[in-house]
Design a protein around this nucleic acid. Sequence first.
DNA 1: CGGGAAAACGGACCGTTGGTCCGGATCGCG
DNA 2: CGCGATCCGGACCAACGGTCCGTTTTCCCG
Lengths: 217, 217
Amino acid sequence: MVRLWHTAVVPRTESMSPMSRVELPVVGEPAPERADASRNRQKILEAARRLFAQRGLAEVTMETVAREAGVGKGTVFRRFGDRGALLEALLDEQERELQERLLRGPPPLGPGAPTRDRLTAFLDALLDLWEQHGKLVLASETSAPGARYRTGAYAAWHQHTMLLLAECRPDADASLDAHLLLAALDAQLLTHLREEAAVDRERLARGLRELATRLSA
Amino acid sequence: MVRLWHTAVVPRTESMSPMSRVELPVVGEPAPERADASRNRQKILEAARRLFAQRGLAEVTMETVAREAGVGKGTVFRRFGDRGALLEALLDEQERELQERLLRGPPPLGPGAPTRDRLTAFLDALLDLWEQHGKLVLASETSAPGARYRTGAYAAWHQHTMLLLAECRPDADASLDAHLLLAALDAQLLTHLREEAAVDRERLARGLRELATRLSA
DNA sequence: CGGGAAAACGGACCGTTGGTCCGGATCGCG
DNA sequence: CGCGATCCGGACCAACGGTCCGTTTTCCCG
């Protein structure tokens, strides 16, 4: 099952708006969201973000989110389908910005810099992103194993990494290598390294750069 | 909280056996398991293994395991504490054998072969291991995020990898590199690659060998 | 502006599942 | 054999994700 990329933009409306006079079941835009619906979507996202920020992970139930948002539990589920999807929506929101910078931002993240530099800059940025909402990623992974890999965001990271790698080494199995490289940014691993193994950010970044260099040389 | 490595060997007995005459609260061996207890532990492990083999992952509840083992639910929990621990025990059982081969088996896995070869042989073996009970690993990861990294088995893999890497490149941050390399064997990633991205075993193995080579050169 | 159908709301309700508890059966040592 | 320690088992509990449906809100159209 392929999930829509930007859940915030394409709501899961139950039915299509019946086109005025023509009977063709046009597969165009889904019916726009009603005012109260989109208001509540915002409230829910905000509440969820807030709660996840303070209490971590599994401590936040769907009902809590509903209460914090001042909304019924049913509403939360209708808007987001299930817990996993809510978490995904939350992540998505934050990850879109990085994607924007990748495609159209200034070098070295955006186009223009040497490929090698873009790659390390990208990994750095991903690491930053994880610092910010690693908890969230972690939580999302518990509800549905492997969910991360089915995300639009992951697909984008992978695509980007693959292209950069392929440019450095046209002979390589760039797609696979990209996956293996991104594995180093697994939320569980990073959490473990930071919290149990006491690896600081700088050391981690160095290790990642080294890894990327060796993979692209 | 550090969990005992071999759950199967050191049962979680509720109390210590009061030492015969000396009053010192000696912290030695815990009381040995009673006959019925250890018999049931076996029955439970077997049942769990069987069930996980056919039905996958989340389809198996603790109660199912209990019934299949012909045992009360309470017994399962008393023996293993919680779901995560049961899964860990199951994994542990299978992983010990590989550890044995690493330490005392024939080359190239065991001592004797060139370091580089031992490393790739090891990764190959890990991949094999995952083929066999990847489902199990996946399931265990859902119940407690990051559990894998707190396992004795993971510590062993890491230790082994680190030593081999350090031997190849004494200047490297071997510990960190070992973690990053092992990340490529993450259960979720492997599952994704095999099932969604249709990467076959051979290609995967090649990729891993390549990665290892580049990290140790 | 008013009315009515479509859509959304909300919270009571349900089923499942991990985990606990305790009266009674078992074990094993002396 | 006898008796305390240990373990058994399944009824029981609480929590949580998810559903349902009577009520309210929206918004389109005349």
